[in-house]
Amino acid sequence: MNTITTQDFQLLLATQEVTILDIRDKGAFNEGHLANSLSLPITTLPNHLDALSKQNTYYIMSHSGRRARVITEFLNKNGFDAIAIIGGMKAFRQIKVA
């Protein structure tokens, strides 16, 4: 499975534009998310695959990274290029504070 650490993801964000797919629920997304993130909650994602492009690479953001791995595996099996962000938003927020 394709994964990236939050530290490496932060470095990636500093050097290039990426497509972030935030799979947390709308409430969590509205409380805070990374700029230019697409909100597609995990509960609705399987029914909205037609909204995604197989030409893009998607970095999958969840709360702690566990669900991101599940969705990354699902997307990869369906022909999408997806990479799970290990530690999710919880770990990313800790790095941003440090």
Rank of each mutant, 00 (worst) to 15 (best):
Q16E: 14
I95L: 12
E73N: 10
T19F: 10
S64L: 10
S62W: 01
A84H: 01
A14R: 10
K26P: 11
P46C: 08
S53L: 10
R67C: 09
G27Q: 15
G27V: 15
I20G: 02
E73S: 08
K54M: 09
I42R: 12
D50G: 08
S39E: 09
T15S: 08
N76C: 05
L11Q: 12
M89K: 02
L11G: 06
A51K: 12
I86N: 02
I86Y: 07
A51S: 07
Q10M: 11
K90Y: 14
G27I: 15
T43Y: 08
K77F: 13
K54H: 11
F92Q: 07
I95Q: 06
D81L: 11
N56V: 06
T6F: 01
A84P: 00
M61L: 15
K77I: 10
E73P: 01
V70C: 01
Q55Y: 15
L75A: 04
A14C: 06
F74W: 14
L75F: 06
T3A: 00
L45T: 06
M89L: 14
T6W: 01
G32H: 11
R69I: 15
M61P: 05
H63I: 09
T72S: 06
H33Q: 11
L75Q: 02
G27L: 15
N76F: 01
A84E: 03
L52G: 06
Y58R: 10
S53V: 08
L12R: 13
Q7C: 00
P46I: 14
T3Q: 00
R69M: 14
G65W: 02
A98W: 11
T44D: 08
N30E: 13
K26F: 09
A28M: 14
P46F: 15
L34R: 04
L49E: 02
G87W: 04
P41Y: 13
R67G: 07
S37V: 09
H63Q: 13
T5N: 08
L34E: 07
Q7G: 00
H48N: 13
S37D: 06
S62L: 00
V70F: 14
L21R: 03
H33F: 15
F80S: 02
Q10D: 08
S53Y: 13
G88N: 04
R66D: 11
N56W: 09
K96A: 12
G88H: 02
R67H: 14
M1K: 11
N47S: 10
E31Q: 13
L52C: 09
R67V: 06
Q10N: 09
R67E: 13
I60F: 05
H63K: 13
S62Y: 03
H33G: 02
L34C: 09
G32I: 11
I4T: 04
T72V: 04
T19D: 08
D81S: 13
I86K: 05
I23Q: 03
S64K: 07
T72Q: 07
V70W: 09
E17V: 14
F74Y: 15
T3N: 00
H33N: 12
L11T: 12
I20E: 05
N30H: 12
I86T: 01
